[in-house]
């Protein structure tokens, strides 16, 4: 699932002429972290969303193939059409993928540097234990 999730995020946030995408930035460390830290319901919703992204080209493009087997251009079209689907739940799936993918993409130093924005410090996660 790690590879498939990273692949999906890379299709939703691809590199453009102006910005690096998650095809050029390794999202796997954050996905691993999320897998280790997030509640089951978030992980489960993410995995289901990733799988639905794979199987829905039939609905968006009329092509009965998994998204992974499509050309880059067709996957891009699939992602865009899914995000504006008439079916609310399919739009919600894309919102889930964009929200988690956005956490990876928007915090990436490569992206922030390109936009001349300050880098984030590491999140310590510390809390008072006594």
């Amino acid at each position: 699932m790690l590879q498939l999730t990273a692949w999906t995020f890379a299709r939703i946030f691809p590199t453009t002429a102006g910005l690096p995408g998650l095809d050029a930035i390794d999202a796997r460390p954050l996905i691993r972290q999320l897998t280790a830290e997030a509640p089951f319901t978030i992980r489960a919703t993410l995995w289901v969303s990733v799988l639905l992204f794979q199987v829905t080209p039939l609905l968006t493009l009329g092509i009965p193939l998994p998204a992974r087997w499509l050309s880059d251009a067709r996957v891009d079209e699939h992602a865009q059409r899914l995000s504006v689907s008439n079916v609310y739940l399919l739009r919600q799936i894309m919102l889930m993928l964009k929200t988690i993918g956005g956490l990876c993409w928007g915090a990436a130093p490569e992206v922030r540097q390109k936009l001349s924005m300050p880098m984030y410090e590491a999140d310590s996660g510390r809390w008072r234990q006594s």
Partner: peptide, 13 residues
């Protein structure tokens, strides 16, 4: 930026 990325419409390119 992270939240804005989810808020803006569309996907991919």
């Amino acid at each position: 930026l992270e939240l804005f990325a989810a808020r803006v419409g569309g996907a991919g390119q």
